[in-house]
Design a protein around this nucleic acid. Structure first.
Length: 825
RNA sequence: GCCGCUGUGGUGAAAUUGGUAUACACGCCAGACUUAAAAUCUUGUGGUAGCAAUACCGUGUGGGUUCGAUUCCCGCCAGCGGCACCA
């Protein structure tokens, strides 16, 4: 069978039958929404890693369709992003054009790989008809007070005079020019995702994400319970008169012998104006990344602020230090230091000779030597108000005392931070905001959306790091929507998460989106009407398709993308523009594995280890690649590309075709044996597909094909159906040869008949002291009959030899599984 | 640094979730076909000892729980992934 002929024939057939994979908004069939993360259409094209996750998802979608579900399996393009912009700068081409070409390349590859996407629902985040709604969502966030402007740090290259992505910073240096990267703060749009921290934890209970994804989300949000405590500063000449800290251990308040604030803390900034030494320290720490700063083993440096604060519990004056091991992004940016019970505080105290007071007892412990951070040992000491209590009781008492005296209160802190939403780049959605001298920041009126990204010539940022859009005067200049006076547009664009936050919703009404959501637009109604038609709590499409039943994606998106999109979903749901019976956007999350390059490294253009599907499909065909990818290892696994076992899959498909032709000639009838075999195979493979166990599904097919000589025509047709999700071309061809009607992909999935799976004989392994010594044949019916069992054992010479002269102390019978005899003597 | 994952033949990997360890494939050995090679087909293939039946050892490593551990618990060793402006 020549794969080139077969592929061409069936690709043509599918093109001529476009309805095959259409998701039907109006069908009565039960729906399944199967989603795989849409790709960023990069210039290097689709590689075998993409092919791996798409193939697995495609198999599942085809399987569900054959089981009779109305399946939506869509695809689109996460088209905005930095690499395209960088490429545009280098090649002096328009990102729009480059993106269009890349999408065409990806789509061509996907079609060739026979993915059963419903192309009528294709979406593209860089299409104005799409990002109009991305902008609309931002405006809703702003209107609800969830988007605000704040000074936030970015990576800044002083030589290129541009902001850098973390990825562009290599060992603290600029990837392009090698200059030292600095941290610089600029005013940016920030979204208050922290307001949803608890809801994002609670919502997980309504999902069936795999465990590690749930854990990843919870850890990322990083909720910790504790208290806020306010310390008064004794120097009254400053603007700031008190320092607020967050601590999980208010019980150790008596042990707080000094305080440390982050270099970005307001107080530090104020002090740096009058103190040269502090100013220098702040400049130093600006160069370090957060990861460097938080490292536990690194020596901690700091500078004394010259100030003292008052520990409210005992009115003692304690020094205030500035050090960059305290992060401004976590808690309040200031800590109370308890050196006796925290390693970092201890190291800092030793270095600067600050006093250490133990407040929890521990035997054989020299508190001058080492900190003791165990929370559950010992009792409180040196702590008059809660002396002798266990730490957990002391925490309650401490919070009570703080609240009573209005010095502090119970509080939670989260590792999760608000979401920096501004990018100083061109290739993204313009943030739809307008600044007026008089009225401040105003949202663009909804009827003016989308704010189109203007086509420009130069994509570099400005000298002072502003988005290239700021150079386009007729883009920037606009009218204030309130006073109609002169105003200026925001020139920053959105991060690329913005478009992917709601694409799973966009697929549902993709057909309406194509013409700007206006096909139901009625000019007699008010202008907001159009928005209600797309996002609406009575939307027919959303009601039908949401939530996503299975969402397949990579581990690298298990925290950010998943959290951001769940947040946006919860937000939209709360403002009433989604059908409200849907608690979460995704019901199940499956995380797919990674295919590394042959060198065991992540595939990337710069490493030159990218393997494209064409290297296999040009020589062996699409079906071989698809099956081989699935056979390489488990769907969640990490595996390096190697073509060693590829020949096995090729041989398998060749042999399968050859044997089918032989069997057709022989024209055997079904036999008892063939029925047992095929029903076992149906059961096994259905179970494997359902659980994304594609590698074992391939193995089971191979096993069955090794016994294909037994099979009659009916079983052969079933075999082809079982194969069809993995090898769609070969299966269509064989289905036709077997006289199957229409497309095999529209046939009904076979169901196993239990009556062929119950055997009358069973092989029961007999173990002696846990080691299997014999396998005996037994009648299934009487397998739990003790007398029958013992007589079977006695008739085995081998077992009797083991049991000779020994006493059976215990018998453990696991019904149907094994019998273990424990012997003595 | 923080969070998480993985470790089974020469290789990719299975093991119904505590019940016959190594399914399925690659590779390799031997044989058939062929003038020959390729392709294809047949047989064997964890280690040690033995002609063999068989026995002992064996899932990174050291302990533990259990009638029974690749699977559960504790310690160690090695490798990998993610970490907020890559997507």
């Amino acid at each position: 069978m020549d794969f080139k002929v077969v592929e061409a024939k069936w690709q043509k057939f599918w093109e001529e039958h476009p309805g095959l994979y259409r998701a039907d908004d109006d069908s009565d069939k039960e729906k399944k929404y199967i989603l795989v993360e849409f790709p960023y259409p990069s210039g290097s094209g689709l590689h075998v890693g993409h092919a791996f996750s798409f193939t697995g998802s495609d198999i599942y979608a085809r399987f569900k369709r054959m089981q009779g579900y109305d399946v939506m399996f869509p695809m689109g393009w996460d088209a905005f992003g930095l690499p395209t912009e960088n490429y545009a700068i280098k090649s002096k081409r328009k990102p729009q054009e480059v993106t269009k070409e890349n999408i065409e390349m990806f789509k061509g590859q996907m079609k060739r790989l026979a993915y059963s996407f419903d192309w009528e629902r294709e979406v593209n985040t860089s299409d104005p008809n799409y990002y109009k709604w991305t902008q609309w969502i931002f405006i809703q966030l702003f209107k609800k007070g969830l988007a605000y402007k704040k000074e936030m740090p970015i990576n800044w290259c002083p030589s290129c005079k541009t902001g850098l992505a973390n990825e562009e910073v290599v060992n603290g240096k600029c990837e392009r020019c090698g200059a030292e990267v600095e941290r610089r703060t600029i005013s940016q749009w920030v979204v208050k995702i922290t307001e949803y921290a608890d809801k994002l934890i609670e919502g997980l209970e309504k999902t069936e994400f795999i465990d590690k994804v749930k854990r990843a989300q919870i850890n990322w949000i990083g909720k910790s319970e504790g208290a806020k405590i306010r310390f008064q500063i004794s120097d009254s000449q400053l603007k700031i008169k008190e320092l607020e800290v967050f601590t999980t251990r208010p019980d150790t308040l008596y042990g707080a012998t000094f305080m440390v604030i982050a270099p970005e803390h307001e107080l530090a900034l104020e002090l740096s104006k009058r103190d040269e030494k502090i100013k220098n320290y702040l400049n130093e720490s600006r160069k370090k990344s957060e990861m460097e700063r938080a490292e536990l083993n690194k020596e901690k440096n700091g500078v004394f602020s010259g100030l003292y604060a008052i520990n409210p519990i005992n009115n003692k004056e304690i020094p205030v230090w500035i050090s960059d091991f305290v992060l401004s992004s976590y808690g309040t940016g200031a800590i109370m230091s308890v050196p006796a019970h925290d390693e970092r505080d201890h190291a800092f105290a030793k270095k600067y000779k600050l006093s250490i007071i133990p407040v929890i007892s521990k035997e054989n412990w020299n508190f001058e030597e080492k900190a003791c951070s165990e929370a559950n040992s010992g009792v409180m000491i040196n702590s008059p108000k809660w002396e002798g209590l266990k730490p957990e009781e002391a925490i309650k008492k401490a919070i009570g005392w703080l609240t009573e005296n209005k010095i502090g209160e119970k509080s939670n802190s989260y590792h999760l931070r608000d979401w920096i939403f501004s990018r100083q780049h061109y290739w993204g959605e313009p943030i739809p905001m307008i600044y007026c001298q008089k009225d401040g920041w105003q949202a663009v009126p909804e009827e003016d959306l989308p704010i189109q990204l203007p086509e420009i010539e130069v994509y570099e940022p400005t000298e002072d790091g502003k988005s290239p859009l700021s150079k386009i005067e007729n883009f920037v200049r606009c009218k204030c929507p309130i006073c109609e006076g002169e105003a200026r547009r925001e020139t920053d664009t959105m991060p690329n998460w913005a478009g992917s936050d709601w694409y799973y919703l966009a697929y549902c009404f993709a057909k309406k989106l194509k013409n700007g959501g206006q096909d139901n637009f009625n000019s007699d109604l008010d202008s907001n009407r159009v928005f209600v038609d797309i996002f609406s709590n009575s939307s027919k499409e959303l009601k039908k398709w949401c939530p996503v039943d299975v969402y397949v994606g990579g581990d690298e998106h298990n925290t950010l993308h998943l959290l951001y999109s769940r947040f946006i979903y919860q937000f939209l749901s709360e403002i009433g523009v989604l059908p409200n019976e849907l608690p979460e956007p995704y019901y199940k999350r499956i995380s797919h594995g990674v295919i590394l390059g042959p060198d065991n490294q992540r595939m990337s253009k710069s490493k030159g280890n990218v393997i494209v599907p064409e290297t296999v499909i040009d020589i062996y065909g699409v079906d071989v690649l698809r099956m081989y990818l699935m056979f390489m290892g488990p769907f969640e696994g990490v595996m390096a590309w190697n073509e060693k076992t590829l020949m096995g899959v090729k041989r398998f498909l060749d042999r399968f075709s050859l044997l089918i032709d032989n069997q057709i000639k022989l024209g055997l009838d079904s036999s008892e044996k063939s029925k047992v075999l095929i029903n076992k195979t149906i059961q096994g493979i259905s179970r494997d597909y359902e659980s994304f166990g594609f590698n074992t599904a391939v193995a089971k097919l191979m096993e069955a094909v090794n016994r294909l000589d037994l099979m009659g025509k009916e079983e052969l047709k079933v075999m082809v159906q079982l194969l069809s999700p993995m090898a769609p071309h070969t299966a269509e061809e064989l289905w036709q040869r077997l006289g199957g009607k229409g497309s095999v992909h529209q046939s009904s999935w076979p169901i196993h008949d239990k009556k062929y799976l119950n055997k009358d004989k069973i092989s029961l392994p007999i173990a002696i002291n846990g080691k299997v010594r014999e396998v005996i044949e037994l009648d299934t019916e009487r397998v739990n009959d003790k007398e029958y069992l013992m007589s079977a054992i006695e008739s085995s010479e081998k077992l009797m030899k083991w049991l000779e002269g020994k006493e059976i102390v215990k018998e453990i019978l696991v019904p149907g599984k094994m019998l273990n005899l424990v012997i003595k003597g």
